[in-house]
Design a protein around this nucleic acid. Structure first.
Lengths: 189, 189
DNA sequence: GTCTATAACATGATAGAC
DNA sequence: GTCTATCATGTTATAGAC
């Protein structure tokens, strides 16, 4: 950030897009160059190695996605309404989760720094979701389990939608989960 | 299958292992050669292109996993007991789902034949799971939604366990889901 | 059916001028 | 900070002998 150059910003933005649609391992520095219109020398000036570009792109996406989720999950409405809105929000099922997809990407998971970045996204989400279930009246242990389940529904929904090339797969999974949540008797909520 | 050679079988077995731990895109033919101990000429004799080896390996894994799941999900015990056993079965959370992980693998998803193979795995599982929920007394629509949810829990559980490098993440997600299933009043089951 | 050699190209990165 | 040129290595095959 010493010199917030235009090229650097374009490289990161382009990398984020390509990583979202192709993954990190399948995206070469050359592809980022071509798509961003920036020259070869610039890339290696700002990002000495592929790792550095990946770190900049992934951590920016993690930060954006985490703060968006935090915004959605707090608010005035009842806790379970916010949760439901979060689960039912439209998602880019064609590409899968921008962060979650990296769990199958060797280029990310074999790099301890990048893998930690992915981990921080999910531990952040687990925290937010657990808070919501605690606010809804669940004891800590049950709230935590349910937070993991809610997150798994979303991540698994992406997998199903991609595998079946059917965006409604995500909606069905969410509906199947939400219908259980809302039909549970008050005292066990 | 015209000539069931030893080399061919070893190549497929090695490819299946490497695909499970690294993905398809990140696994080069050379790596398969080295790990299998087979020579270069043999590979390209049996599998003219990388696609052909990938198809053989993926379809074998799909067939195995599907028939294992079908075996687990039918039987004498009550439907929801079988479902619960299926969800709680130990899984290789270190590597993720052997098939599900391919939904983030460009080498697989950009190849229509390989992508269809992945799709057939999930549509098969959805069918089996829907049957179980129908048997448990749910109307068709709700049974289908719940099948998608159950599958998403498993696939999402893999993603969480990998991201957090914590095998218990899968168990928590499953527990959060199963606790909802079993606390729902009889008439809505 | 298996071997060795090698081709054609992409990848990740460096060198040095401007 | 950006450019062009180039490099060593890996990848996906092909060729042709055995």
């Amino acid at each position: 950030m010493s010199t917030p150059s235009e090229s650097r910003a374009r490289l990161v933005a382009t990398a984020r897009d390509l990583y979202a649609s192709q993954g990190v391992g399948a995206t070469s520095p050359r592809q980022v160059l071509a798509a961003s219109g920036v020259g070869q020398g610039s890339l290696y000036h700002h990002f000495p190695a592929k790792h550095d570009l990946a770190l900049a792109a992934i951590s920016a996406t993690v930060a954006d996605s985490l703060s968006a989720a935090a915004r959605e999950l707090r608010g005035e409405r009842p806790a379970l309404d916010r949760l439901r809105a979060y689960l039912e929000r439209p998602r880019d099922t064609a590409n899968g989760c921008r962060i979650g997809r990296h769990t199958s990407d060797q280029a990310v998971m074999s790099d301890a720094v990048l893998a930690a970045e992915v981990g921080s996204y999910f531990s952040g989400l687990v925290e937010r979701l657990t808070e919501v279930f605690v606010e809804a009246g669940l004891p800590d242990g049950a709230a935590s389990d349910r937070a993991y389940a809610a997150l798994a529904i979303v991540q698994g929904g992406y997998v199903l939608a991609r595998a079946l090339t059917d965006p409604t797969a995500m909606q069905r999974a969410v509906r199947g989960f939400v219908s259980l949540l809302t039909s549970v008797p008050e005292e066990t909520q």
